[in-house]
Each structure stands twice: as structure tokens, then as C-alpha cells.
Design a protein around this nucleic acid. Structure first.
Length: 267
DNA sequence: GAATGAACCTGCCAGC
DNA sequence: TGCTGGCAGGTTCATT
């Protein structure tokens, strides 16, 4: 499932090859992938850069930005044949970029370049870039919330980039029970949380992201990620630290793994 | 305004 | 063998 590290890995892989190329044409085949676009502007410009915020991947042109959200099963493929899951194709002067998405949770949004900042400001700060000031704002918001920590950190309006797999990993590393009310967290909990988030995300980027057994995620040129070898709690049966049996519960319909010995509930 | 839950979507797998 | 139901989960929208 593409979360921050997977999107960042895709961005890095594409940047060295596609940036600078001129977009000649593009096609979006699937109405659901295209659900937020009202127009199909002609973009015959060079790709000036590729950026990312949270789980969003952005192709930057002089007058337009093409925003990709990969959803659960979206991926970017370079110079691959069109297949039944190809939802869009971008024809650059040298290479062709496919947007494939089996489950069609992803989307492509084409906006004018000057609207990009406002668009991205609708989601919270990227968890790799959170400043001290931004972390204080997040903690202030948490004090007014009755949500569970697991729900809170998955909500992209507070902070962006964390998905279900890394939420489990970060809470385990921070020894926070996923059902802890967010307003009950101490300042030390938050300090651990922010530190572990950056640590876990950086390691996952170094490993090119996490490719689970369903093999849904891989990089634009076909390489798999290797961070699945470094997961400590997600989809595991015994605790990495104490060998205790790991509990699996559902919070907001999402699989949640935790060790009741290492992550005590303090509400 | 915040919290909650359903809907969207497809491939895979277990059970019958 | 073939069918059915459950599961995976990010986001939006409707409801409470």
C-alpha cells in the first residue's frame, strides 16, 4: 500500500529519468481515476520537477500540476505496456508513464500550477518535514480531540504520509497502545512519536518501501521494496521485543497489531 | 464541528 | 470445479 516511503521512492526513481522531458500527450481512461477533474487541459510543457507531500505525488509543469494519489493499489510504470489495470498514460518525448491501479481507489487531479499551494495546504504537514511549531499545533489539536491515536495519525488533515502499515510500526516503536485516547498522551509520548515516525520513514525510504506478499507495490522500473524485512509488528504473530503473542484488532475497520505487554493502555 | 460508518473497488483465498 | 463470502484499506460522503 503506497504510503509516504513508497511514494518518496517512486518520486526518486522517476526524478532522475523523467524530469526535463516534454509531455506530448496524455490519456485518462477510467472515469473513477478522473473523478475530480472537470476539464482535460492540453499540457505540452516540459516536466520541471516531481514533488511529494504525504502520499501525494506531483508532476510539476510551468502552468499545471498533475497530482497522483495511488490509493491502495496504484503504481507508476515507465515504458510498460498498457494492461487492463492501466487507468492513464502520459506520453513524454522519450518515455511513457503508466498509472496502473487495480482497485481504483487512486485518482489523478490536474490543477493550475498557481492553485497547488492551496491544494496542498488542505492536508496536514508531511511527517518527514514537521517543524517544532507544526508539532505544537498538532499536539494542541489532539488535546481537543476524543479520537483514538491510531485514527488521529491516519487522518491526513492533521499530518500526512502515514498509512496503516507504518501507523502500526510507529505506535509499536513508541510503546503507545493504538486505542489510547489522543488527548491522554503525554508530551514524552508525542516526542517519541515524532522521533520514531521520522526514523521509521527514513529507514523505509532507504529500503525503497514495503512490498507485501500481495506484490502490489513496486517501483517504476520494476524493482521491489525490501522494507517488509524490517517490519516489527504489522502482520506478525509474536512481539519483536518480548515474544508475547501479538493482538490483532480492528480500529475503524483497519487491521491493528499491538503487543499488550509493550504497549500498555493508559486511558 | 466532530465522530462514526458505509461505500467505492478488485484480486485472492478459504470454505462449502 | 465453481460459487460465495470475507478480507485488504485510503478517501469521501452521509448521518448522527
Amino acid at each position: 500500500m503506497p504510503e509516504l516511503p513508497e511514494v518518496e521512492s517512486i518520486k526518486r526513481s522517476l526524478s532522475s529519468n523523467i524530469v526535463g522531458q516534454k509531455l506530448e500527450n496524455y490519456k485518462i481512461y477510467d472515469h473513477r481515476t478522473n473523478r475530480y477533474n472537470t476539464k482535460k487541459p492540453t499540457i505540452k510543457e516540459s516536466l520541471s520537477g516531481i514533488s511529494r507531500k504525504g502520499k501525494l505525488l506531483i508532476f510539476d509543469f510551468e502552468h499545471y500540476s498533475i497530482i497522483f494519489h495511488l490509493g491502495m493499489s496504484g503504481r507508476i510504470q515507465v515504458n510498460d505496456k498498457k494492461n487492463k489495470h492501466t487507468r492513464a498514460r502520459f506520453y513524454f518525448d522519450k518515455d511513457t508513464v503508466n498509472f496502473d491501479d487495480i482497485r481504483r481507489f487512486g485518482f489523478i487531479n490536474i490543477i493550475k500550477a498557481e492553485l497547488k499551494i492551496d491544494y496542498l495546504n488542505k492536508i496536514g504537514p508531511d511527517v518527514l518535514e514537521i517543524s517544532t511549531k507544526q508539532s505544537r499545533i498538532i499536539i494542541d489539536k489532539s488535546k481537543k480531540s476524543k479520537s483514538l491515536i491510531k485514527d488521529f495519525i491516519l487522518n491526513q488533515k492533521y499530518m500526512s504520509g502515514i498509512g496503516n502499515i507504518y501507523a502500526n510500526e510507529i505506535l509499536f516503536a513508541s510503546r503507545i497502545h493504538p486505542e489510547t485516547k489522543v488527548n491522554a498522551l503525554s508530551s514524552n509520548n508525542w516526542k517519541d512519536f515524532f522521533n520514531n515516525t521520522k526514523k521509521i520513514m527514513r529507514l523505509a525510504i532507504k529500503n525503497n518501501g514495503t512490498t507485501l506478499s500481495d506484490m502490489t507495490y513496486f517501483l517504476p522500473y520494476g524493482e521491489f521494496g525490501s522494507n517488509q524485512n524490517f517490519l516489527k509488528i504489522y502482520s506478525k504473530t509474536n512481539c519483536f521485543n518480548c515474544e508475547h503473542i501479538i493482538d490483532k484488532i480492528y480500529i475503524n475497520q483497519r487491521a491493528t497489531y499491538f503487543c499488550r505487554k509493550c504497549q500498555k493502555l493508559k486511558n
